[in-house]
């Protein structure tokens, strides 16, 4: 099996991951809806996973892909707990607008 990166090049994948990560950062900063903020965090995690797989192919080593499994497990746990917190917040406040969460402000 020929190395696929001979035809694409690792730098293209680096640029793709960087742009995807920046879009995730932009979403976290731009939106007020907490669910969209969670989606942006998922996009950032996926950008990092993509780079892991690209470098795993670059070194022809499976350890990078194994690490992606753990990253996925952490992402799944994070989403489950985060959405449960959101449901609790929605029950108490009645919206998921993160600008309304100011109760801890002195």
């Amino acid at each position: 099996m020929e190395n696929i990166l001979n035809q694409i090049g690792i730098e293209n994948y680096i640029f793709l991951s960087v742009l995807l990560f920046c879009i995730g950062v932009f979403g976290v900063l731009y939106r007020r809806n907490a669910i969209i903020v969670f989606m942006s965090i998922e996009i950032m995690l996926n950008a990092v996973n993509l780079l892991f797989v690209a470098f795993s192919t670059y070194w022809q080593d499976a350890k990078g892909e194994v690490f992606v499994f753990f990253s996925m497990a952490v992402a799944a746990a994070e989403v489950a707990v985060g959405l449960a917190i959101l449901v609790a917040v929605f029950r108490n406040i009645g919206s998921v607008d993160i600008s309304n969460l100011k109760n801890l402000k002195g």
């Binding site: 001979n6 960087v18 920046c22 900063l29």
Partner: peptide, 26 residues
């Protein structure tokens, strides 16, 4: 922030000339 961050990161990786050339195939 989006524009600055993406420009800075892309330029960093562009000028560091990451891995040009052949890729090893075991």
């Amino acid at each position: 922030t989006f524009i600055l961050l993406s420009t800075a990161l892309v330029l960093i990786f562009m000028y560091s000339k990451p891995f040009v050339g052949d890729y090893p195939t075991t």
